[in-house]
Computed example of a mutant assay.
Amino acid sequence: MTAPRKVRFNASNSYNANFAGRTALYRLFTSDGALLYVGITCNLDQRLAKHTLEKLWWHQVARMTVEWRATRAEALQAEEIAEREEHPRFCDTRRLGGGWTRHARRSDPALQQQILDTADELRKAVLEGRFQAGELLRERRVAEAYGISIAMTRSALGVLTQERLVGSVTNGFLVRPLG
């Protein structure tokens, strides 16, 4: 498992405040420079916070670049060109006629395997008693401890939920008694 690390971008001072009314085209890269994702937003803080919760690949992000466009239409066009020509590893939107979009998640077998590997590690921790019956596992804490995204943590804990080792509750996952 990768060593835990936090990737945090605080765009409020350097980006959002200086570019009110404009749209950002942003690119997210791995530490070795591979392009993970291209997106657009008018509020980087909000979008990046959402990515930390929803993107299985978020833990791979090491660097971000931002280009500001005068209009959303200009940013959309630049995003489409970037997706077509730069081939990001993950691409959430495919443009349809009339400006509508639909989400098409691209599944990466390596990420799916990492979810299963994390589930294996969590299962072992439960079975060995490192997580006690009745203990509340909070997604963010588990994600930070294992150096993975919250979405990936949720998926791994979902595997344990199906195995009835943990149960989903409002504020996390509760370790069930063994036996």
Rank of each mutant, 00 (worst) to 15 (best):
T118H: 13
W57G: 00
R130K: 11
R69G: 05
F131L: 08
L53P: 01
G98T: 12
L36Q: 00
R47I: 08
T65G: 11
A82Y: 04
E79H: 03
G147L: 01
E80W: 05
N43Y: 05
W57K: 02
P109L: 01
L36V: 00
V38T: 00
G134I: 06
D92V: 03
A133I: 09
D117A: 15
A104D: 15
Y26D: 04
T30S: 03
T101E: 13
R154Q: 13
Q132D: 11
G134F: 07
E83V: 09
A133Q: 13
R27G: 06
F90N: 03
A145S: 07
Q132T: 14
T118V: 13
W58N: 08
F19G: 06
Y37Q: 02
W57I: 03
T118D: 10
M152H: 05
R63M: 13
L136T: 10
G129E: 10
W100M: 08
R72K: 15
Q112K: 13
F90R: 02
R141I: 08
G134S: 05
A143N: 09
R138V: 14
G99E: 10
R123W: 15
A70H: 08
E144W: 06
E85R: 08
N18I: 10
F90P: 01
R89S: 00
Q132G: 10
E135F: 12
T118K: 07
Q46E: 15
R95C: 04
P109W: 05
A133Y: 09
A62P: 06
H87K: 02
P88T: 00
D117S: 13
K50G: 12
R102S: 13
R141K: 06
H103R: 15
R138L: 10
F131N: 03
D45M: 02
E67T: 10
E74I: 00
Q77W: 11
L56A: 12
